[in-house]
C-alpha cells in the first residue's frame, strides 16, 4: 500500500497542477473574480443552441421509450400480480446503476453514440414510471371498477375508460419526476459521446470558468421547470373531474 502515493492520479494531479486555469481571450480576461461574466455570455450565447437541442432530443426520445416500456410492464403486472416484485426489483437495479457507469458499460456494445445515451437514460426512467403507474392503478377505488362492470363494460373497457383515467394523476406524477430527473442527468450524456450541455462543462478551460457552468445549470433547470409545468397543465386538462370536485 505504501507505493500508492507514487501512482499517477491523473485527474486529481491535473487539477492541483493548474488544470484550473483562467479562460483566456474572453471579454472577462484578467478578471478572475467574476462569478458571472455578462459580456462573455452575450457574445457566446450561440454556442449553447446545438447542445440544448441535443439534450432535448435525448430526453424526449428516452422519456417516450421509457414511458412506453414501463407503462406496458405496469399493465402486465396489473393483470399478473406475481410479476410485480421481480419487475420492481429489476427496474430498481437499472435505476441504481449510476448513469456515467451505464453509459461506459454500453460503449463496447453500442459505441460512442446517441443510442448509448438513450438506452441508459430510458432504462433509468423505468422504475419511477412503473412504480407510479402500478400505484395509480391500485388506488382506483373498487367501487368505481365495480360500477363499470355493473354497467356492462368488458375488462378492457374497465381498464382504458375507468382505471387508467382515474390513475392519471399518479401516472403524470411519475412522468414529471422521470422527465425532470432525465433532463438533469442527460447533462452526463457527454460521457456517452452523445453531446448535450455537458459538452459545455467538460472541457479543460470550461471546468474553471463559472460563467459557462452557470449558463448550463440555468438552461437545464429552466428546461426542467418548463417541462414540469407542461406536464402539470396536461394533467389539469386530462382530469376535468378533479376540477369539478374542487369548485
Amino acid at each position: 500500500m505504501a507505493s500508492l502515493a507514487a501512482l499517477p492520479l491523473a485527474v486529481v494531479g491535473q487539477v492541483e497542477k493548474g488544470f484550473i486555469q483562467k479562460r483566456t481571450g474572453s471579454a472577462c480576461q484578467g478578471k478572475p473574480s467574476h462569478l458571472f461574466c455578462f459580456d462573455w455570455a452575450r457574445e457566446n450565447i450561440d454556442r449553447y443552441g446545438t447542445p440544448t437541442l441535443q439534450q432535448l432530443e435525448l430526453v424526449a426520445i428516452s422519456i417516450v421509450i421509457g414511458f412506453v416500456v414501463a407503462f406496458a410492464l405496469a399493465l402486465l403486472a396489473h393483470r399478473r400480480r406475481w410479476l410485480r416484485p421481480p419487475l420492481l426489483a429489476g427496474t430498481g437495479i437499472l435505476y441504481a446503476i449510476p448513469s456515467i457507469s451505464f453509459f461506459l458499460l454500453l460503449l463496447p456494445i453500442t459505441g460512442r453514440s446517441r443510442e448509448t445515451a438513450i438506452i441508459a437514460l430510458s432504462a433509468y426512467t423505468l422504475q419511477i414510471i412503473f412504480r407510479n403507474v402500478t400505484v395509480g392503478l391500485d388506488n382506483v377505488p373498487a367501487s368505481a371498477t365495480d360500477s363499470a362492470r355493473g354497467m356492462g363494460m368488458t375488462e378492457r373497457q374497465v381498464l382504458w375508460r375507468v382505471e387508467i383515467p382515474l390513475a392519471t394523476p399518479e401516472i403524470i406524477g411519475g412522468l414529471r419526476i422521470a422527465t425532470v430527473s432525465t433532463i438533469a442527468i442527460a447533462t452526463l450524456a457527454v460521457f456517452a459521446g452523445a453531446g448535450g450541455l455537458g459538452t459545455q462543462i467538460l472541457g479543460e478551460a470550461n471546468l474553471t470558468f463559472p460563467t459557462t457552468i452557470l449558463i448550463v445549470i440555468g438552461i437545464v433547470m429552466a428546461m426542467a421547470f418548463f417541462f414540469d409545468a407542461i406536464l402539470l397543465t396536461i394533467q389539469y386538462y386530462a382530469t376535468p373531474w378533479r376540477r369539478a370536485r374542487a369548485s
Binding site: 487539477v15 492541483e16 484550473i20 462569478l35 419526476i177 425532470v180 430527473s181 433532463i183 438533469a184 442527468i185 447533462t187 452526463l188 457527454v190 450541455l197 455537458g198 462543462i201 467538460l202 470550461n206 471546468l207 474553471t208 470558468f209 463559472p210 457552468i213 452557470l214 448550463v216 445549470i217 437545464v220 433547470m221 426542467a224 421547470f225 414540469d228
Partner: peptide, 22 residues
Amino acid sequence: GNAGRAIPELGLIALMAAVIGV
C-alpha cells in the same frame, strides 16, 4: 424536492470546484 431533481450533477460539482474550491 422537485428543484433538487433538476440540478445537473456535473454542473454542481464543476461550479463548486471553480467557485468555492476543491
